[in-house]
Design a binder for these strands. Structure first.
Length: 424
RNA sequence: AGAGGAGUGGCAGAGUGGUCGAAUGCGGCGGUCUUGAAAACCGUUGUACCGCGAGGUACCGGGGGUUCGAAUCCCUCCUCCUCUGCCA
């Protein structure tokens, strides 16, 4: 979340930024935050004053008791009663203020950086890079949901039986190809210096708040009521939360992790005809990269992370483009996001396969993820993450773009991992 | 899952109702000494909030309670250890 001090010192910048992302009533909410914070400050001053007096009296009582002056002690005790009630009242006002303030701050999204384009939705995203050409498909080319049936590599009906819609069963060469991609993506990341982790795929509430899924995306995660746990929507959550309440030594920066996990999303309200086949699932596999940086370096890192993802797509021989997301289309926690989309030639559609973001201090603020600066003071670090990559849509593009009379050609870089070069 | 034990500053480890934000040791930082280093010695060394400052407040696993006063007593939750049970 945004820090109070930052909001106070940069009121206009914050309001402008929130307007850029089409956050309703930005100015009013910021004013409300500042007013609440004023109240919090003055209440705390009074509260501390009362506690201070009360502490002093308690010490007096302690000394008198030790000297055996019991009656005098009782006299002082009587004086504490009023302070006690006053302290209690002020304490309640204070925690009320703090709760309301927190509630408001949790609702305020990150401020987009200056390079984020204006715009209200997906149409306003700016294509900043394009690579590759659309493959020429045979006359009888079909979309991936037909290919997976005819080659019998993914079975949605089985998934429907076992669980429900959006939980496919990968079979035979389909399963093998999934495993190949996971290993390929992990190996490529490790070559880039990322340290692999295998985090839990179930998280607690604190972790959900830490990276900003809660309270913003409550309802989009699967909830385990008995334990109040959540199924992760992305490995970003457990991996970034490894650094909750951590002070990182500057010499250990940057922190770079990669992890493969299944991801679970309820996708409530976002189903429709446009999300057939692998385009949208409730459970899917993803390899995620997470970095933690000194604020001075985070945008260079964002750039390198994008390059890494682009490299993967190029090695897979996929046509892709890079979008600089506009203010209205960015995620809640992000300061800037680049989306990578691959072209799925039979659907004739661009599919988002990666989203690379710099959260600046937004997550670090909730996580209390800090470093000690040259000034000897504590400062928040910057967190970043990106998909590298999400599998289903990559698979959809590979299947569609590489189909031919002979079968589906496996990208060369994957062949050492699959052990076959064609799905026939 | 049941029984018992335990969670204190970067680490180790005192502290069972009153100047305890917390002894002591190690580590870290600064200094003296030294050609340099080690050793020794001296000093310093948590975080957050309020305040221009002096200073104040809070925090001893989390939350709640008792009390004038809680690291210390009570309740509850979490985590770890030991034993028993179960299990990939």
């Amino acid at each position: 979340m945004l820090q109070l001090a930052y909001i106070r010192d940069n009121k206009e910048k914050v309001v402008d930024g929130l307007n850029k992302r089409r956050f309703a009533k930005a100015a009013e909410i910021i004013e409300e935050v500042i007013a609440l914070d004023d109240q919090r400050k003055s209440t705390q001053a009074k509260h501390d004053q009362v506690l201070s007096e009360s502490n002093a009296l308690s010490k007096q009582i302690g000394m008198l008791m030790r000297e055996g002056k019991k009656e005098e002690a009782e006299g002082v005790k009587a004086k504490t009663a009023d302070l006690k009630t006053e302290g209690k009242e002020l304490g309640e006002i204070l925690s009320n203020c703090e709760d309301k303030l927190k509630e408001l701050l949790y609702l305020i999204p990150n401020v987009p950086n200056n390079n984020v384009p204006e715009g209200g939705g997906a149409d306003d995203n700016v294509v900043v890079y394009e690579h590759g050409t659309t493959p020429e498909l045979p006359e009888n080319a079909v979309p991936h949901w037909e290919l997976i049936k005819s080659y019998d590599i993914i079975d949605f009906d089985l998934g429907n039986k076992i669980t429900g819609a959006g939980f496919p069963v990968y079979k035979g060469k389909g399963a093998r190809l999934q495993r190949a991609m996971i290993n390929f993506f992990l190996d490529e990341a490790i070559k880039e210096g990322y340290v692999e982790v295998q985090p839990p795929i179930v998280i607690n509430e604190d972790s959900g708040y830490g990276t900003g899924q809660l309270p913003d995306k409550d309802g989009q995660m699967y909830h385990i009521g008995e334990e109040n746990f959540f199924l992760i929507p992305t490995a970003e959550v457990p991996i970034t939360n490894m650094y909750r309440d951590v002070i990182v030594d500057v010499k250990d920066l940057p922190v770079k992790h990669v992890g493969f996990t299944p991801c679970f999303r309820r996708e409530a309200g976002s189903w429709g005809a446009h999300v057939r086949g692998l385009n949208r699932l409730h459970q899917f596999d993803k390899v995620e990269i997470v970095e933690i940086h000194h604020p001075d370096n985070s945008y260079d890192a964002l750039d390198r992370m994008c390059k890494h993802v682009q490299g993967l797509l190029e090695k897979l021989g996929l046509q892709y483009r890079v979008l600089n997301l506009c203010g209205g289309d960015m995620g809640f926690t992000s300061a800037q996001t680049f989306d990578m989309e691959v072209y799925s030639a039979a659907q004739k559609k661009w599919l988002e396969v990666s989203s690379v973001s710099n959260f600046e201090t937004f997550q670090a603020s909730r996580l209390k993820l800090r470093y000690r600066g040259d000034d000897k003071k504590m400062h928040l670090l910057h967190t970043l993450n990106g998909s590298a990559l999400a599998l289903p849509r990559i698979l959809a593009a590979i299947l569609e773009n590489n189909q031919s009379e002979e079968g589906i050609r496996i990208p060369e870089v994957l062949v050492p991992y699959t052990g076959f070069d064609m799905i026939r």
